[in-house]
């Protein structure tokens, strides 16, 4: 288990993190979300031991970060971090050696990973000769090849096409199935919702959301209604308690002040006796995220 407790970090007068706490159990994925500059990368750097927190502690199954723990961490940074002029296999071997895995063991695994991630290129090629997507896949190999217990992905899907993004998602889910502790950050809330068991949202270094995805969504109540019926926009505006009405090709998306307004709308719809869709749902993660960002 990875446990982060009461982390504070400042750079001069800038408070980068303030009292951040969370934990990730084996076989669990934690999504870390937040705007640029919210403190996600600083959190990752503190977990990796690249930065020293002013206060608080990071424990990996009870141990502080040390050489043995570092060997059990796989890290995929936001910006690609590899040697462009070095042969792919040489750098995978070197970086795996730094994680404590012998050259011989790494060599036996490289082909398997190349095949699994469908890399277009040879392992003897220089990295710079690969496309950006394939370079990102090499980075993923570097992250996984030493079979780490803890995985940290900083914006893993950034710049990937949908096919490659799917390969990445499958790889992350496969690691989850193996019982790894996984943290990842993303600006794409669909990915976060799809992959995360729990999530943390940081805003100016402070936790503003924390919990499982479903709990967070349900905490705001089912204030969304999707409706396709003979009711018009003017009919809907007469119903009190509707905050916002959006219409697209005859389908309405309503935001309610209170979930209890939903049944009232349903009654109105039933009266018309003609409707194709009525669905009352919680806010999406994306909406919650935007709402939290706007909150003062």
């Amino acid at each position: 288990m990875l446990k982060i407790k009461n982390i504070d970090k400042s750079f001069g007068s800038l408070q980068a993190l303030s009292n951040v706490s969370f934990e990730v159990k084996e076989g669990e994925i934690l999504g870390l979300i937040g705007q640029n500059g919210a403190g996600k990368t600083t959190t990752f750097r503190i977990i990796l031991g690249l930065l020293q927190p002013d206060q608080g502690m990071v424990k990996f199954s009870g141990s502080k970060v040390n050489s043995q723990v570092l060997n059990q961490i796989g890290y995929l940074p936001e910006e690609r971090g590899l040697f462009p002029r070095m042969r792919i296999m040489d750098q995978i071997i070197y970086l795996a050696e730094l994680k404590g895995q012998s050259r011989a063991v790494t060599k036996t695994k490289i082909d398997e990973y190349f095949e699994r991630f469908e890399i277009k290129g040879k392992k003897t090629d220089k990295l710079k000769n690969l496309s950006k997507g394939n370079q990102q896949k090499v980075q993923l190999i570097v992250t996984l090849i030493h079979d780490p217990k803890y995985l940290i992905f900083d914006e893993p899907f950034s710049g990937l096409d949908p096919v490659n993004a799917q390969i990445f998602k499958e790889a992350i889910l496969a690691e989850k199935a193996k019982g790894k502790c996984i943290i990842f950050s993303s600006h794409n809330m669909d990915n976060v919702e799809e992959l995360s068991d729990n999530l943390i949202m940081l805003k100016s270094g402070k936790e503003v959301l924390s919990g499982s995805v479903s709990d967070i969504r349900n905490a705001y109540g089912r204030v969304k209604v999707f409706l396709e019926s003979s009711l018009t926009s003017s009919d809907l505006s007469k119903i009190s308690g509707i905050k916002d009405i959006k219409e697209k090709s005859g389908r309405y998306e309503l935001t309610l002040k209170d979930p209890s307004i939903g049944p009232k709308i349903l009654k109105q719809v039933e009266k018309t006796g003609d409707f194709l869709e009525f669905s009352q749902q919680p806010l999406t993660l994306d909406e919650i995220f935007k709402m939290k960002v706007r909150e003062k």
Partner: peptide
């Protein structure tokens, strides 16, 4: 070069 190529973060997350 290693710093410019951002590989330093990977290396230093592996060794002291």
């Amino acid at each position: 070069r290693e710093k410019g190529e951002r590989v330093m973060e990977i290396i230093l997350s592996s060794t002291e």
